[in-house]
Computed example of a mutant assay.
Amino acid sequence: MQIKLMIAILTGLFAISNSVIAEECNSRSEDSVFIMDCLAARYKAADKELNAIYDEAMKSLSSDGRQKLEVAQKAWLKYRDASMAFITEVNRKTGSTGNFIIEDYRSALVEKRAAELKYILSGPDAGPATW
């Protein structure tokens, strides 16, 4: 029960900060340095959320659950790295627009993984998956 409460609190805090960051990134669309800094902040917030969820889960899961989460997370990290290599290659020659796409995708990957873990760790109260 403790893990569900902690994840609910973390979810609320990070959802607010991520939506504020996403809105802020769109506010000055003509300033590419601002956009890149903003996208980097969005990624940092998403990564912080994912790490907090993972750390909390590792504290509260059974030994078998921790081992399975660790295996799943290592597989996801390989997927993340391969996906980032692919999107970087596809956008290699597209200039700053490609850089925006790459950075946005990097954040989206991490945000989606955080949503997946929250869903998995919510148990029977999870409701339908949204990501």
Rank of each mutant, 00 (worst) to 15 (best):
M1Q: 13
M1V: 03
Q2H: 06
Q2A: 05
I3F: 01
M6G: 02
I7N: 08
I7L: 12
A8D: 07
T11S: 08
T11P: 02
G12Y: 04
L13H: 10
F14K: 02
A15W: 03
I16W: 01
N18P: 03
S19H: 08
S19Y: 12
V20A: 04
V20D: 10
V20W: 00
I21K: 03
A22Q: 03
A22P: 00
E24M: 03
C25G: 03
C25V: 06
C25D: 01
N26V: 02
N26P: 00
R28G: 01
S29T: 03
E30F: 12
D31K: 06
D31E: 02
F34Q: 00
D37G: 12
C38G: 00
L39Y: 04
A40I: 03
A40G: 08
R42P: 11
Y43T: 09
Y43K: 01
Y43F: 08
A45Y: 01
A45R: 00
A45I: 01
A46M: 04
A46S: 15
D47W: 06
D47P: 07
K48F: 10
E49H: 15
L50T: 10
N51K: 14
N51I: 06
A52I: 14
A52R: 10
I53L: 14
Y54I: 05
D55G: 15
S60M: 12
S63C: 05
S63Q: 02
S63K: 07
S63N: 08
G65Y: 01
G65P: 01
R66I: 02
R66C: 05
K68G: 11
L69E: 09
E70L: 05
E70D: 05
V71G: 04
V71F: 10
A72I: 11
W76K: 08
L77Q: 08
L77K: 09
L77C: 09
D81K: 12
D81E: 14
S83F: 07
A85V: 11
A85I: 08
F86N: 14
I87E: 13
E89S: 14
E89C: 05
N91G: 03
K93V: 15
K93P: 09
T97K: 07
N99V: 11
I101S: 00
E103C: 06
E103I: 12
E103W: 09
Y105E: 07
Y105T: 11
Y105I: 13
Y105F: 14
Y105Q: 09
R106M: 13
R106G: 13
S107C: 14
S107A: 15
L109C: 11
V110L: 07
V110N: 07
E111K: 14
K112G: 15
A114N: 11
A114Q: 12
L117F: 08
K118H: 13
K118I: 10
K118D: 09
Y119R: 02
Y119M: 06
Y119G: 09
I120K: 10
G123S: 09
P124S: 14
P124V: 12
D125N: 11
A126C: 00
G127W: 09
A129E: 10
A129D: 03
T130G: 12
T130V: 15
T130F: 13
